[in-house]
Simulated scan of single mutants.
Amino acid sequence: MSDWLAAIILGLVEGLTEFIPVSSTGHLLITKEMLGLTDPKWDTLIVLIQLGAILAVVALYFQRLWKVLLGLASPDPWARRFAISVLVAFLPSAVVGLLLHDFIKTVLFDVRIVFVTLIVGGFALMAVERWAPAPREDDAMAFSFKTAGLIGLFQCLAIIPGMSRSGATIVGGLVSGVDKRAAAEFSFFLAIPTMVGAFALDFWESRDMITGDFMGTIAIAFVVSFLSGLFVVRTMLDFVSRHGFAPFAWWRIAVGALGLVAVGAGWL
Rank of each mutant, 00 (worst) to 15 (best):
I151F: 06
P135R: 07
T235N: 12
G26Y: 03
A182W: 00
G71K: 00
G121P: 09
A246P: 10
I192M: 01
I160Y: 07
V263N: 09
A262E: 12
A142S: 10
D110L: 07
F226T: 01
V128D: 08
W251K: 05
G97T: 13
I218A: 12
L37M: 12
L201V: 10
V111P: 11
S74N: 06
V47D: 04
I54K: 02
K146H: 08
S164H: 09
F82M: 10
T117L: 15
S93D: 09
F231G: 05
V13W: 03
A191N: 00
T147A: 14
L258M: 14
V263R: 05
G71M: 00
A140F: 05
A132E: 07
L260K: 09
F186D: 07
V240K: 07
A219P: 03
L100G: 15
L118W: 13
A73T: 01
D110W: 04
P133W: 06
P133M: 04
T211S: 13
V57R: 01
R136T: 14
T235E: 13
V233Q: 01
P77I: 01
A168I: 08
D43R: 04
G256N: 08
L153A: 13
R136N: 09
V223H: 07
L227T: 04
A83E: 12
T25S: 10
L28F: 06
L118G: 02
A127T: 14
F199L: 03
F62K: 03
R112V: 09
G122S: 04
V68S: 00
G15D: 02
L230N: 11
V114G: 05
G216L: 14
R242C: 05
A94K: 10
G259I: 06
E129K: 03
L258A: 15
V88D: 14
G212Q: 09
G259S: 10
W250I: 15
A142R: 07
G52S: 00
F82V: 08
G256Y: 10
A191I: 00
V255P: 08
I84R: 12
P40Q: 11
F226G: 02
T38H: 12
A265K: 14
L12D: 02
S176Q: 09
V128Q: 07
F248Y: 14
I192C: 02
L201N: 01
S2T: 13
I20L: 08
V95C: 12
L99I: 15
V120C: 10
G52H: 01
W204I: 07
D208E: 15
I104G: 12
A73W: 03
D76F: 00
F245D: 04
I54M: 03
A134R: 14
T106L: 13
L230T: 10
G152R: 02
I8K: 00
P133L: 05
S176H: 11
M34N: 07
R80T: 14
G173S: 08
V261S: 10
V255E: 04
F82Q: 05
E137A: 10
F186L: 06
L268Y: 10
F188G: 02
G36P: 08
L150C: 01
E18Q: 06
M209R: 11
W78I: 07
D110A: 11
V57D: 01
G149L: 13
V171K: 05
S228G: 06
V224N: 03
F226N: 04
M141R: 10
A257L: 14
H27S: 03
W131G: 04
F239W: 08
F103A: 15
S93R: 11
L100N: 15
